[in-house]
Write a protein that binds this DNA or RNA. Sequence first.
DNA 1: CACACTCTTCACAGTTTTGTGAATTTATTT
DNA 2: AAATAAATTCACAAAACTGTGAAGAGTGTG
Lengths: 170, 170
Amino acid sequence: MSSQGAELARARFVEQFAMVLSDAGMQRMPARVFAFVLASDAETHTAAELADGLRVSAAAISGAVRPLIDMGILLKDRVPGDRVDHYRVYGDDVWSTVIGRQEPLYRHIDVLFTEGLKTLPPGPGQRRIHETREFYRFISTEIDTLARRWRERRAGVTASREPARAASGE
Amino acid sequence: MSSQGAELARARFVEQFAMVLSDAGMQRMPARVFAFVLASDAETHTAAELADGLRVSAAAISGAVRPLIDMGILLKDRVPGDRVDHYRVYGDDVWSTVIGRQEPLYRHIDVLFTEGLKTLPPGPGQRRIHETREFYRFISTEIDTLARRWRERRAGVTASREPARAASGE
DNA sequence: CACACTCTTCACAGTTTTGTGAATTTATTT
DNA sequence: AAATAAATTCACAAAACTGTGAAGAGTGTG
């Protein structure tokens, strides 16, 4: 069936999902593309399909897709003989990818705090900033553990719903 | 000494720290106040001090402080006999607080995805969204572990620099 | 109770973001 | 090479966001 209503519901969900990502710091348009790519049934998408599905211009897609590619979340490839780009998510475990790509951010933060600590005079402020640097370092290391544990759990989850199953979620 | 230069350096650091928080989704002004409160040597701050230290208006402080209080990061109290509010960070372990306050967000996300899953027809899209919900649930649970482990590590870090020490950070 | 002072709210101006259509560039086919 | 089609860039209009000054509300003091 795949009625129009169903597609409308999907579009609504994509938008709300995108807002969650947006609140978490991702720019709106890339967030939309990412949400769309996850929630849609196709494995690859042309720019036209994205533009069409999200009801935005080709220009917007072009701009939104680059940061996602830079982040290593999306992959662009063009099959010789076809003259359109095909986008698809990198790897079969997006969230591991997303987790992994945080590292440069934490490196940047560490530099910032280390520089800052050099200029702060001793005192409660310096103490708190030092502790904050330790916190970010802690998170940075824990992220590896987190990624590993996620892969373990994911194996369990995907195993339990192997072939595409019946209807409703849950 | 506490030369003007030193305070200027602190202000610069505060601004950069605030930008990190801002990139991570916190609104700019609350981020500034939070960064300022962490990096300054005082344990409590009046609105006037915040406005002065950040070179912004009292109105801006008023607006910035509310979300921080709502998040449970800042505490406002007024000593009887004084007619100004005094702000200070809640608890002595800010980052545990920050971690803890994520829960409502994850609850919201879970509802959103569960609702969404009801409307998505079976297929790769539904499968990915289901997996994404599992991912968020995973993170949500892991956060408790993370908080506990942070408290452990923090005990070690603070112990090793007990009284405010010499100069440069690290 | 009237005063003094702080905090908050509000309308607004300046700035930044966002997304578009048109023009340009890049790539592919004939 | 010329022609065609897609992707990107660019200038711009619309919308959202920020922070301000001023007015108003709340609170403690004499």
